[in-house]
Design a protein around this nucleic acid. Structure first.
Lengths: 160, 160
DNA sequence: CGCCTTTCTTGAAGGATTCCAATTAACCAG
DNA sequence: CTGGTTAATTGGAATCCTTCAAGAAAGGCG
């Protein structure tokens, strides 16, 4: 399906193949995401503007929505963070989140296919995905007593 | 540990046992959560004000933070929703979220203990919890063609 | 009972995201 | 290559949720 032209950015083909119009901001957003996984809207805007200074923040939001609807991009929102975006690949991975610094790391899915977890009782829902956040402390935050204490004991949880 | 006095609200004991001061807004927040699982801050505020009209929204946020840190309450934030709260019980359940209407349903955890999923590579993290969101369409939204189409096919997805 | 600390109230600010109308650009057919 | 149609982008403002700050009130211990 993909229309491959000489020296054409792969992002352009991605867009066309998904049935989306190829626009400068959309290409720029995809390129930015390719370089910077787990970026939020502000970071993407900044990256996009390095090469296209005139792009508005609204355009970035529109692009992200369009790309998400088209399935090219996946949006994440671990509690306490603003929306993060990543290019959707076929690996159906999950995420490891640090309670201390909110750092996000990819972890492979054990089964590899979505939905990767069986559900006993689905309440009549048509389930298509299981999204998993593993919460914990990253190596750096484990060294800091404050944050160590926050997540290790049973009662607390300074999620912020 | 709990100091049980005649005709005392169990919420007061919960707070005292957790080492928190027993205040009117905190008790009211716990009572509201007990009646209304998966409520957001606005819903809790409204419920609290039915009996305590003077409670400020800021007090509700403060209470929710204090209760969350103390481990009495758990906060959820499925992508696209504002923060939701539920009383933390010992069942370590997970959640089923409708992409159409954002309705949230509890589903039991298969293993029952946290973290309920083993992680092959933990990147040096100290993991204490696996939070799972099952995404799909609730029975009502499955009946609506727009939303049905949104999540079932591979390319589209009007997640709104 | 009274002090000290924590929590609450009030008012306002902040950040992220969305809405809207007018303009501009991309795609497709001729 | 050119025009017409459709869709995307711009820019500004508005909305929603959450947090900050300062003073007032209330809880808990001695």
């Amino acid at each position: 399906m993909s229309t491959i032209t000489t020296d054409e950015l792969p992002e352009r083909a991605m867009l066309r193949d998904a049935g989306l119009r190829v626009t400068r901001p959309r290409v720029a957003v995809l390129v930015a995401l390719d370089r910077n996984q787990h970026a939020d809207a502000a970071a993407i805007l900044e990256a996009v503007r390095q090469e296209n200074p005139s792009v508005s923040h609204q355009a970035v939001y529109d692009c992200l929505h369009a790309l998400t609807e088209a399935g090219l991009v996946r949006s994440l929102q671990p509690a306490g963070s603003s929306a993060l975006y990543e290019i959707r690949r076929n690996d159906n991975h999950h995420h490891l989140v640090c309670r201390g610094c909110a750092q996000l790391v990819d972890v492979p899915c054990s089964t590899g296919q979505a939905p990767c977890l069986h559900l006993e009782e689905n309440h009549g829902y048509l389930v298509d995905e299981a999204e998993i956040y593993y919460w914990g402390l990253c190596p750096d935050c484990r060294k800091q007593p404050d944050r160590e204490a926050a997540a290790s004991s049973s009662s607390p949880s300074k999620v912020t």
